[in-house]
């Protein structure tokens, strides 16, 4: 039986019983990707973990993240969630995350950056579909994306977020309260739950955008593998708030991002950004 180092509530049969998955294709993404970084008053942890659904089916992780900085002052953080319906969405997530991080680091505005990334993704998608014996589903690709630039100004955080699809940006304050700053909101829910999204490539790469200024707390950029249970379950809010009041050790953070919870079997990606010293008051 697989060990479950972190779980919230009922971990579910899949987490307890599934063995490790088949290895991915040669050159494919690792099961777990992890980064730890620091930048002008900030501590950063980033982790992406292959979900149980992809492990169970021998499919690669389709989430991706990318970090960058602008003039060693502003952090650039990007999370992409490949659309599971398509076989090459891991390539889409990797490409778009790097395009957006590069553009953000160069000072390109988010609308321009998303439009450019959208063009590059469409070109790659068309190339893959034009291949001999290409299959529209197995060789198709699409991804969501959320990109954030964040810096520390006198007295607090100043940031700008942009997104296409349901990857999200959250703020965690010193009291353990989670606030959604960007990405899909609960209003989108219909009579039944649906996992349908409007991803990239889109017609023009138009993104939604939000600017913010906040006095303290920490920020979390994440794919819906984590934001869905966070939105829907108060126990998840409490547990993640307690785990992430201060920056964990990098390997601990990666294990926590992959927490087991019944039916939440999607890939998981989170970039956490704390004030240096871990004081969420921002003092």
């Amino acid at each position: 039986m697989t060990k479950v180092p972190y779980s919230i509530g009922n971990p579910g049969r899949a987490a307890l019983e599934l063995p490790d998955g088949l290895p991915g294709d040669c050159g494919g993404p690792a099961d777990v990707e992890l980064s730890a970084a620091a930048l002008s008053g900030m501590v950063i942890r980033a982790a992406s973990s292959r979900g149980l659904l992809h492990r169970g089916r021998g499919k690669p992780r389709q989430d991706a993240f990318a970090l960058g900085h602008r003039d060693q002052v502003a952090l650039i953080a990007v999370v992409c969630d490949g659309v599971g319906e398509f076989g090459r969405s891991d390539e889409a997530a990797a490409l778009v995350s790097r395009c957006l991080a590069g553009a953000g680091a160069s000072g390109v505005s988010w609308p321009e950056a998303f439009a450019s990334a959208n063009d590059q993704l469409r070109k790659l998608a068309d190339e893959r579909k034009a291949g001999e014996n290409a299959d529209l589903i197995e060789d198709g690709m699409a991804t969501t994306a959320v990109a954030v630039s964040l810096s520390l100004d006198a007295g607090g955080w100043v940031g700008s977020a942009a997104w296409i699809g349901d990857s999200t940006l959250w703020h965690l304050d010193v009291d353990g309260t989670w606030t959604l700053l960007g990405g899909m909101s609960d209003e989108a829910e219909g009579y039944y739950h649906s996992s349908a999204v409007r991803p990239m490539p889109s017609t023009d790469g138009a993104c939604s955008q939000s600017d913010f200024r906040l006095g303290g707390g920490a920020f979390f950029v994440m794919s819906d593998g984590v934001s869905n249970p966070l939105r829907w379950n108060d126990r998840v809010k409490d547990v993640l708030a307690s785990w992430w009041q201060r920056p964990p050790e990098p390997i601990t953070f990666a294990a926590q991002v992959g927490f087991a919870m019944k039916t939440h079997i999607d890939d998981r990606t989170v970039i956490g950004i704390w004030p240096d010293g871990g004081d969420l008051d921002g003092d």
């Binding site: 969630d81 599971g84 649906s194 409007r198």
Partner: peptide
């Protein structure tokens, strides 16, 4: 169930 993750497009049955 295997494609329970994202699907692209409008709010269609999966």
């Amino acid at each position: 169930v295997v494609t329970a993750g994202h699907t692209a497009g409008s709010n269609q049955p999966a």
